[in-house]
């Protein structure tokens, strides 16, 4: 049975920078004043309608391999199982911000409040990552408390749909984790509902295990190569 993790609203309030990045405004540029105003309004709406919740469950190497294999649609050569094999701890996780925030985004678009709707969407996307951060920290603390890892250990998360892990892997992940307990369901297309939800696996261990090159065949199709930024941040300890 997975552990339901309480997440405070305060914990999922994103900062301006992360939201502006999602609005396509690079860190090197000063956000326009009207964008800043929209951010403040969107953040207030978000605070009123966000209902964060999370769940995680420790799993063994063998169980993870079963989850990862999913419907046998993964790319041929992928990094996640190799990283997992060197891990000190693994857990499946899922977090959500609830349905209300998604409904509010739709409502704003339908009433032609396009800029505010888009800003709220970005606030919620950044908020969902913060929710995942909170559960990730909880997992690491739990491993430390149990003496599974030392204070040098780090956690990185990987999700179906990325790094060669086919999105159909969600099905098996859901069977193990049962995130329906916190209100997350899976559509036939492997899309989670509510839409502002994140799921995947936490992999804990030494920093080195997470270092990968972005030269796998499927990396050609990846637009962001954000894995490299995440690895860089990990090595810098940020």
């Amino acid at each position: 049975m997975g552990e339901v993790v309480e997440i405070s609203i305060r914990g999922v309030m994103p900062g301006e920078k992360s939201v502006m990045l999602l609005q396509g405004i690079p860190l090197s540029k000063k956000p326009p004043e009207n964008a800043k105003e929209l951010f403040l309004v969107a953040r207030d709406i978000y605070r009123e309608c966000v209902h964060p919740a999370g769940i995680m469950k420790d799993i063994s190497q063998e169980e993870f391999q079963d989850v990862y294999n999913g419907q046998s649609l993964n790319a041929e050569n992928t990094p996640v199982p190799k990283i997992a094999m060197r891990a000190d701890g693994l857990a499946l996780f899922a977090v959500t911000l609830g349905q209300t925030v998604h409904d509010k985004i739709n409502e704003l678009f339908e009433s032609k409040e396009l800029a505010l709707g888009s800003m709220l969407d970005s606030v919620a996307s950044a908020g969902a990552e913060k929710a995942a951060d909170i559960v990730e920290t909880r997992f690491l603390q739990s491993l430390m408390t149990r003496g599974v890892v030392d204070k040098e250990a780090v956690v990185m998360r990987y999700s179906p749909g990325y790094c060669g892990w086919h999105v159909s892997g969600q099905r098996r992940l859901f069977e193990y984790l049962k995130p329906e307990r916190v209100g997350i369901t899976l559509r036939d297309s492997f899309l989670m509902e509510p839409l502002k939800s994140v799921s995947g696996v936490f992999i804990a261990g030494k920093k080195e295990i997470h270092i990968i090159e972005d030269s796998y065949p499927f990396c050609k199709e990846c637009e962001t190569h954000s894995c490299q930024e995440r690895i860089e941040a990990l090595l810098e300890g940020t």
Binding site: Q23, G24, P31, P32, E113, L114, A115
Partner: peptide, 15 residues
């Protein structure tokens, strides 16, 4: 030269 929020504010004015 401009970003998404400005595009969408302009679009609202257009509507």
């Amino acid at each position: 030269e401009i970003f998404l929020p400005e595009v969408l504010l302009a679009a609202k004015a257009m509507y």
